[in-house]
Amino acid sequence: MIDIALRSIETLGGVVRGRVIGLGRFTLLLREIFFWVIRPPFRVQLIFRQFEFVGNKSLSIVTLSSLFTGAVLGLQIGKIFGIFRAEGLMGAATGKAMALELAPVMCGFIVTGRAGAAMAAEIATMRVNEQLDAMEAMGVSPVSYLIVPRVIASTLMMPLLTAIFLSLGLVGCYILGLIMFRIDTSVFIANLKWLVWVSDVQKGMIKSLVFGFIIATIACYKGFYARGGAKGVGEATTQAVVSSLLTILIVDFFISLVQMRG
């Protein structure tokens, strides 16, 4: 009995110790990221390459998913609003939901799955193949060369992708409204202007900026501290995706809370 209790305490202690070490490492990495963001060399070419990777290469999946998300949301809202003969409000309701929540969160999920996972896997592979050690041994900081461009690109690209997601989502909703509910275009636009404010879009953009930073830092952190060959790369990638998704949802709640009170 005492043995079991001791073992449980030991396991718990090990888990807590691991978490504290992880938090410490993450904090140190964040400090180093901020250090290299403001300190030369400024790797403009690498940042643009990451803009292309995070932004341009996510465009097709963002386009497709936004059209269908907008359409399915419009379908559900239109069906319920139809009970009250208020189908004309479906665009406004969809727009409000997308601007405040769905566009930044869905974009965050998409970028995590596509770019975040790739970042974690690439950096983890470089770690287990000693490529990061080689870089360090040459006097080049891997944080400056690999992580900072990814964090900057992800942070700046997310609002752009979110804006595209929101716009195309509304297009998807409008097309569905036209076909399924035969809504009037002028009513759709008037209600959209009436209910969806610029401040709603701004709030969504702020969220997406934060999510972009979260995705890249978590992905790079998991990759940077990967250990143990191919298995380690797989684990780092999985952990990066799971941690990013959960963090996005938790941070989203707190930002929403602050934005509602503000």
Partner: peptide, 30 residues
């Protein structure tokens, strides 16, 4: 240390080449 490392070359066990770059880009990197 960054300054000191410029005077030191290190050859890793399997070369530790950057596989996202060509051979020429690898050599040009430092």
């Amino acid at each position: 240390w960054i300054e000191a490392r410029k005077k030191i070359g290190l050859l890793f066990q399997d070369g530790a080449l950057f596989d996202s770059m060509t051979v020429g880009e690898n050599v040009a990197f430092p």
